[in-house]
Nucleic acid binder design. Structure first.
Lengths: 333, 333
DNA sequence: TTGTAGGCGTTATCAG
DNA sequence: CTGATAACGCCTACAA
């Protein structure tokens, strides 16, 4: 592999000049620039990014920590971040935290030790205080789907409470007054906020919240089936089921059918996130749209703006969920 | 950030010695080792991985190119690769190719320019010849889900033809003799092989292949609906539909129901890949299992073995798909 | 506009 | 077992 030194020799200029044309910043006369580019072409020269990083103290890489690599939610998020960053010639280093505190901190350490110029985190188990402290370090930190007021400038988040509210309200306004709720893990802030929204909607319509119509799931398909099983065993009457995400909703749908329910007549179900597959459940899932792909783009833009000095970028820190009406909820008015 | 130099001063030893304990390879007396570790702890020293890379010509990173970051298939694949590599302290740089030739080559160049120790590719648009040539370069290349005989030692692949054969055969042995087929894009080798398997099964049972019962989809949900729409317009009778992947199968299911079919009575459908969601379609999708997560692990093990000298690893280059029987196919015998 | 030279933080090759 | 010292390939004041 040719080095900058060989290029400079072939072009008959100094190392510095070659470096200048590589980073086409400082002005170089057209003639010398031409000589240099010719030499680079002839030698098929490629800058060694590692050496560049060491000398410039910049790696052009941003670290990303997601809970899981699979799953439609994280897929959309990563796709958003990566495409935006890639366009700017930056690359992403992706690792996982599995929603466990030690794995999340380990992943963060890992990314920092890799000298990322910035890190974008979707963490759920780690505490707010830890993150606030982390932000004081040398590596800039950005948060996805999590709002911490002390570092709100570094957060890109969804109004999950509004989403939870919207979901339950849309159910109630269809005439349902006994509605069950399958929540996500309550140590996750999104899950907590969505539940808060649910309660808010209930309160607004003076519907009491019952423990027997509440179940804490794990945000996966099995969480949905387990939740519904629990409710059925409880023998408490309910005509609608609100699930804190689409995976659980689809698990619930599957289980409901196994139990002989006919949907949506016997039970209305609403989800959250609007993952692609929610269009292919039967009945098609009514849900709350979570613009996670957009939010990924925005997180990337935020680092482009703050870290890589790309000005003229408008940043939106807060996103709003919207109701997507399909077929899984019926009116009983 | 403390450097190795400061550590050496504090410990009263040389740079070289500190380096030795960092890479605990060469022998160092317990006493000096202790002094050094103490000094490192006191200074909260972390090795600069960039500098290490420059000096050692090893980045401990492996590049991964997938078609898309979202989608259940790639999610499982990446999860397999990442978890295995992460365990070994390596990190992954992920980028995308979108199944387009120029984007794929650009992505590959990108990863190579990042000095990855190896790259694992899931490419579809790029030619065999290009890949064979690529393997002659300095960066070791490994291929996922693609078999090229000239470089078979670098391939981890699935017997897609067998899978296609299994799918159609299982349909035929349930009594179906007029079966439609929605293929994947034929420039993708998996798609081609699956189709070949389908034809092989038809031939074995002396069922002619008809163009009117063939449609080339795009491996996404819409491909499935478009395919089914096409067949229905053709007005050719068929009792079963084989789809080259689960996404298309679920698109077809959704469309079929929109058209008033009752499933699986009016139409048997089988998919391919066994993505998680295939358990939540209605009816639950009968499909072919594609152990892509396992294959991801194996690809990672292959680089661990070849590049990072981890011996005692057994490599399996070929994986076999298996039939997963669920509810979307019925017997008409 | 161009060149010189020091430095980025490690590793690795020699001696000792 | 330990210590000098030269790479690694590039960037960036500072000079010219």
């Amino acid at each position: 592999m040719a080095t900058i030194y060989e290029v400079s020799k072939l072009a008959g200029v100094s190392l510095a000049t070659v470096s200048r044309v590589i980073n086409n910043n400082s002005r170089v006369s057209d003639k010398t620039r031409q000589k240099v580019t010719d030499a680079m072409a002839e030698l098929d020269y490629r800058p060694n990014s590692i050496a560049q990083s060491l000398a410039s103290n910049r790696t052009n890489s941003v670290g990303i920590l997601v809970s899981e690599l699979h799953g439609p939610f994280f897929g959309q998020m990563m796709a958003g971040i990566e495409s935006e960053l890639r366009l700017a010639g930056k690359h992403v280093i992706i690792t996982t935290g599995h929603s466990e505190e030690d794995k999340e901190t380990e992943g963060i350490e890992f990314l920092i030790s890799r000298n990322c110029d910035a890190i974008i985190l979707h963490v759920e188990a780690v505490s707010d205080d830890y993150l606030i402290e982390l932000c004081k370090g040398n590596t800039p930190v950005y948060l996805m789907s999590r709002y911490i007021k002390e570092i709100k400038e570094n957060c890109i988040s969804l109004d999950n409470e509004l989403g939870g509210y919207l979901a339950t309200k849309s159910i109630i306004t269809q005439g349902h007054s006994s509605v069950a709720y399958i929540a996500g893990p309550q140590f996750k802030s999104d899950a907590k906020c969505r539940l808060a929204g649910h309660k808010k909607a209930l309160a607004e319509y003076k519907i009491p919240f019952h423990d027997t119509l509440y179940f804490e799931g794990d945000f996966s398909e099995t969480g949905g089936s387990e939740g519904l099983e629990y409710f059925i065993k409880n023998k408490r009457h309910f005509t609608a089921l609100v699930c804190a995400n689409d995976e659980m909703a689809s698990g619930a749908i599957t289980y409901a059918r196994e139990q002989g329910f006919s949907l949506p007549q016997d039970l209305s179900i609403i989800g959250f996130d609007n993952i692609i597959f929610s269009q292919h459940t039967y009945p098609k899932l009514t849900t709350i749209d979570n613009p996670v792909n957009l939010m990924g783009h925005m997180a990337a833009k935020l680092v482009l703006k703050n870290i890589y000095q790309q000005s003229d970028i408008e940043i939106t820190h807060f996103f709003e969920p919207t109701l997507i009406v399909r077929d899984s909820v019926i009116s009983i008015l």
